[in-house]
Write a protein that binds this DNA or RNA. Structure first.
Lengths: 156, 156
DNA sequence: TATTGTTATACTCTATAACTATA
DNA sequence: TATAGTTATAGAGTATAACAATA
């Protein structure tokens, strides 16, 4: 059986990254671009972005949460959260419910469809996470999470 | 001397992050937002974004680099690199030079002003990096960089 | 045919400021 | 006065598709 012809090792000239190679910020951006693209490829068909996934998961874990609380948790401005929730409500995944004591606030709840979509999304996110950390052991992945959590802790 | 009145410990209700807390992608986004904001606060006055800094540093370390090579190195589309370089050329930080053998390509070079701006930017980036990793030891910071470099290695 | 740079275009994401209704 | 949600608006950043010049 003949050895399969080896594909030409396309020599793509790579630039010297120099000092960039030592910067946390640079690698953070690189990693985030790759992760975001894989996330989009995997969850895009469900029309679920990272922010939407986070919002659905947060409402699920904190039923009755207010818009401003959600906004703070995902680091968006209150006004930006409005369009996210408009989107989710239009898709009948979330409802804004009236709050008894405070007629200014909305209490957010998942609909049955929202819960169901979240269930599907969670499965896709789980395999996405597995993919992105394919080269890391379980301990290394946990350590990456821990180290990331210590970047600008004063901003949390 | 009277003990200074302690500031009220503002009790801000925090949502339960649930499974988000275990996701690399979630923490990556959190960290990047914080890092980007500090970068902008520090280098915004110089009108230097992360991409612009990377491009200046890359041209400095790879004089004569072509636009497409730069685009690949910072993970932008060729067409997006055009506006970045239009910006830098308008500010007389970079010049597009003709290439002898290939009349399709441009060879990028820093001007004296570009070199000088990069020098200032490097100093600001150095203190920015120090700030973001304030809570990490030197070894931990290096490990964070190493771990980030192993996220989606197949995309590099 | 393939590559380099370019243009026109459009889209996504997000913030700011000002408004309203409540508290 | 302060807060919750909203609206109108604008800006940054990026990609896609099509094109001309050149290889």
């Amino acid at each position: 059986m003949p050895r399969p012809k080896r594909k030409e090792a396309e020599i793509v000239p790579q630039l010297d990254l120099g000092l960039l190679n030592r910067l946390v910020g640079f690698h953070l951006r690189e990693a985030q671009i790759a992760v975001f693209r894989d996330f989009a490829a995997s969850l895009g068909p469900l029309d679920v972005s990272p922010v939407i996934f986070a919002v659905l998961a947060l409402i699920d874990g904190n039923p009755g949460a207010k818009q401003t609380e959600l906004a703070r948790a995902v680091r968006l401005d209150r006004s930006s959260m409005v369009s996210v929730l408009d989107n989710l409500e239009r898709r009948e995944l979330v409802v804004r419910q009236a709050v008894a004591n405070d007629r200014r606030s909305n209490a957010l709840q998942l609909t049955a469809a929202g819960t169901e979509l979240l269930r599907k999304a969670r499965r896709l996110v789980a395999s996405h996470e597995k993919r992105l950390a394919r080269g890391l052991s379980v301990a290394e992945r946990a350590q990456l999470v821990a180290l990331l959590g210590r970047v600008f802790p004063e901003h949390r």
